[in-house]
Amino acid sequence: MRIGIPRVLLFYRYYPMWKAFFEALGLEVVPSSITNKEIVDISVEKSVSEACIPIKLVYGHILDLKDKVDFIFLPRIVGLEYRTYMCPKFIGIPDMIRNASLDIPPIIDPTIDKRNSLTGFFKSFLELGRLFTKNSLKIIQAYTEGLKALKSYNEELRRGITPLDILDGKNYGGEDFNIKIGIVGHCYEIYDEFISGGMIKILNRLGVKVLSMEMIDWRAILREANVLPKKLFWTFGRELYGTARYFIRKGLVDGIIMVVAFGCGPDSLVRELIERDLTKPINFPEITITIDEHSSELGLITRLEAFVDMLIRRKQYEDNLSSVW
């Protein structure tokens, strides 16, 4: 039996785990194609026009899998930590897909809700495994395999290897350049090169070392975010805020690029917090890149170049200052 996994949303965070889990249960795992023009076009046609591009792309990736698999895995991810939520669209996406008249194989949409349980993912995966086998032991083994895969994936990410490197077998983040930029955005925006317009590679060509959230210890990020008097209740929001604060406070980067999907609900507020609390008061260099299905690569390159130029000039100025002193 073949199970399809669309290359969207938390794919970039959990794919190795899901793959190991399903394979241990004896399924063949088929990821959807890397986002291409065709997927984008059909996504735009089939989805609600007001949805953000990451949600739109789910439609296209599901259709990409349509004739290749027996089931499609599209979990309903409600929350990943105590008293936090994912964005409402994450919670509703399986229902949106199911009701969209797409004529697709059955959707498997286990609810993943880690908010109130100590057992973590385990309960969701146990239920998920039951769909394919009655043997609980086998499910537990598969789950352990999944966790192992996730652990080594995360270790690689921590070492500064991006999901792109792992997919392409190259190294985009590792080399030491003079200018360092922290990218603050969701994994499914940054690492889907269609959405992000290949931002990381462009920056690399411009001689910039790129840092992203995946390279920092998750707990350290959350600690940064917990300084807020009212904690953010979106996991992503906390991660974005925490990452930005970590980058700035530890002096790891010369500037920050915020990547925001057009019409993204949570980020409209989180971005405001980052600006008002973190960057504006100290004049920290920052730009926001808004992305949607119409974004042009040319426009992106121009903006990135201008930003990098500014950082270089700023750095030279600071170096001059310090040599004078």
């Binding site: 949805a51 409402p88 669209k89 919670i91 019409g263 993204c264 949570p266």
Partner: peptide, 13 residues
């Protein structure tokens, strides 16, 4: 940009 209503819109059709 209301997230819950975008989900609803996707289903109302």
């Amino acid at each position: 940009t209301c997230m819950p209503e975008i989900v609803a819109e996707g289903i109302l059709e």
